[in-house]
Amino acid sequence: MGYLLDSIRALGVTAKNIGRKPVTVQFPKVIRERQERYRTSFALLKDEQGEERCVGCLACERICPSQIIHMSSTKKESPVTGKKRGYLDDFTLDMTACIFCELCVQVCPFDAIVMLKVPHEPGYVREDLVLTMAKLYENAEKPLTWGNGTKLMEMQEPPKPAPAQAAAPVPAPAAAPVPAAVPVPAAAPAPAPVPVPASAAAAEPAKTEAP
């Protein structure tokens, strides 16, 4: 008897479902909005003057857990500011081993490397999955994620201490917690006093923001 009643209830449930709208999303035709932290491939950015942001500081290469980032750079005079700074000669990021931890983005003091918000394309050969410098600069045209080095570091900073202490110079608490503050090689004469990425980059309008 119990089975009978339960059966009737089950029939009712399915009958009700017939009138309901299907929940299926027809994937390749309809693509739902990506999640906020959806991140796939990488891009290297240029600043407003069209200058490469990356100065070859090796921060990302050092922090990468899979050790898949390799770069080389030389120092040149910047055509824009006239100051000497590093320029990339080569930069590769091997997506075959990437674990998408986003640490390289987090540590970048110049917000040069960011991640994409579109699915990264599969390749027919392994070489397709190695992002060369050219591919990385091309990727800057694609939809980018919300995060860049500055914003991610801001999330990690401990609550700000009293203003009096904050005024005190460099050995700030901000530098302490994460390997984020990998000291930029002194060789790279970046704009302004180097090791305060947060404030320096925050001054610029964040054009890396995802739409």
């Binding site: 399915t14 009958a15 479902n17 017939i18 309901r20 709208k21 299907p22 929940v23 299926t24 027809q26």
Partner: peptide, 10 residues
Amino acid sequence: KLAARMQSRI
């Protein structure tokens, strides 16, 4: 078709 609709599929 019916089975799909009963399970909220298409």
